[in-house]
Design a protein around this nucleic acid. Structure first.
Lengths: 337, 337
DNA sequence: TTGTAAGCGTTATCAT
DNA sequence: ATGATAACGCTTACAA
């Protein structure tokens, strides 16, 4: 592979001149630029980004650290981030932490060592504490999860509000004994739990069981089975992400529980399958494209100006009413035909 | 951030010695090593991987270039690759090409420029030609897609055989007018088409329509609608990946076509939702974990020994029989109770 | 066992 | 407008 020296030699100029041509510097004779460009083309030269990065102490890469790459919510974000970064000539290094604080630290270190220009990150709750006292200077945008910090920008849903809306929707559709399943690793689970309780309180209802569990299909499945065995079993289940929703749905089907007539179901995040199953699942859809794009743009702004005050972008979810939460004859819609 | 010079100074040794300690060289006095390690800890030093990579002309990164990050098949592979790479101390740079040959070239260049040690890649058909005459020396493992080459290792399903098996399964369950939907960008679509035709031929059947289309949900949906409008409409549809399957399933539901009694359905790749819908979808499941691990291991072997002959690992899929392909009263199972 | 110094491929500073 | 040259942080001959 040809390097800048080869090009300089071939064009009869110095490496400095080649570098200037590459950087589109002003003071270059048209003829010289021509010769250099020819040499570059002839030798099929491409600058070595490693060397450039070492010299410049920065790079055209950003990191994206997510907690579960199998969660469609995060892959959708990944797509959006990649597209937005690509438009700016940046490439994206994607890492997967499995909600594991050790892996969080590892990958943040790796990314730092790779000289990434910045990081988009969905942290666990544990991370919050360590981040507070860290003095990392790497530009960072937190996504999806609430965090008290002025050292990073934030892009996320108003999770309390969204859970409140979803819970209220269930209540208005006649459900009274609502159980909730929330991810145990993230602030998001905690916030949605808060919105859930708040909505119940406004209608003088008690929760019919709350589980903070690992955000996986299997955990959702197991928790749903346990809920169904209770003597005063819930008449609806609210889930905090699509993996839990899938697990619960599977459990309901295996136990031949009729949805929504025996048990209603509502959750978060739009998925391929949520619309395909019977009944289609009611969810709060998150604007993944917008979250990803906004996070990327904020990151670029912060990279350019590391000292700007932190922005907090709070987005709204969109309630997509399926049939999993609407009984054939809902008490509140007695004449609904 | 402290560098190797700072550490050397703090420990009262040369940078070479620090480097040797880091590399676990043999000839170091225990006491010296101790001092160096202390300095490293005290200064919270971590080697700059960029500099190391520039010097060593290689890195502990590998690239994973997939054609659609939203396809659960590829995210599953991504997980497996990441786990396997992580165990070897490598990090994974994941890129998304959208089946676009231009993006393929771009990302392969990017990865090359990033000094990755090797690449795991699911290429389009177009790539095959250009790869043939390229003389890239970057270690490469091709996944998921057949390719005639001895310059890269290969890990994929026997797609002809798998499609043959799936088609035969449909035939044995009484379906006679089977249509096929295949991805138009990949050799995999082509191979599965071949297996499909072969199985039909063995039973003296004609295909009931074949579409080579873009592997997206929407394309599958549109193609299914067209098939359903035909005067001699198919009694079964075979799809070549899970995005197409989702589109077809949605179309069948929207048109209130009964599955499998009016139209049977079978496809590729195990997904969350495939088991949750009614009826559950019959698929050939691919061993994604094994594909990812094997590809990663082959890549490491090739990195260590670039001149070893190319391996071709051909795996078998597993038929997971759902109800989407089994009629209540199948002609071949007349007494099946 | 340890140190010195060259060099990986760039870019930026300072000359000219 | 262009060229020499010193860094960026690390590894590795070669010397001592």
């Amino acid at each position: 592979m040809a390097n800048i020296k080869d090009v300089a030699q071939a064009a009869g100029v110095s490496t400095a001149t080649v570098s200037r041509v590459l950087a589109n510097h002003v003071s270059i004779r048209v003829e010289t630029r021509q010769r250099v460009l020819e040499a570059i083309a002839r030798l099929n030269y491409r600058p070595n980004l490693i060397a450039r990065s070492l010299r410049a102490q920065k790079s055209a890469r950003i990191g994206l650290v997510v907690s579960d790459i199998r969660n469609p919510f995060f892959t959708a974000i990944g797509r959006a981030v990649e597209d937005a970064a690509y438009e700016q000539g940046y490439s994206v290094l994607m890492c997967n932490t499995d909600e594991n604080p050790e892996k969080e630290e590892l990958y943040l270190n790796v990314l730092h060592d790779e000289n990434v220009a910045g990081v988009i990150f969905s942290p666990t709750q544990q991370f919050g504490a360590s981040f507070h006292q860290s003095n990392s200077k790497i530009p960072m945008v937190i996504i999806d999860r609430q965090m008290e910090t002025d050292k990073a920008d934030l892009v996320l849903l108003d999770n309390v509000l969204a859970a409140h809306e979803l819970t209220t929707h269930l209540i208005q559709n006649g459900f009274r004994r609502i159980a909730g399943l929330f991810g145990d690793a993230s602030a998001t689970g905690r916030d949605r739990h808060a919105g859930f309780l708040q909505a119940l309180g406004e209608h003088a209802l008690q929760d019919a069981g709350v589980h903070f569990i690992s955000p996986r299909i299997q955990s959702g499945y197991d928790a749903a089975l346990r809920l169904l065995e209770r003597k005063n079993r819930p008449d609806a289940i609210l889930t905090s992400n699509s993996l839990l929703t899938a697990g619960v749905f599977q459990a309901l089907r295996d136990k031949k529980v009729k949805v929504p007539d025996e048990v209603g179901l509502a959750g978060f995040d739009e998925t391929t399958w949520g619309q395909l199953v019977d009944p289609p699942i009611t969810v709060i859809a998150q604007p993944t494209e917008e979250i990803g794009r906004t996070a990327t743009e904020l990151l670029f702004q912060r990279i350019q100006n590391p000292d700007r005050p932190a922005h907090r972008v709070i987005l709204k979810g969109r309630l997509m009413e399926g049939l999993s939460s609407v009984k054939a004859k809902s008490p509140l819609h007695p004449a609904a035909d």
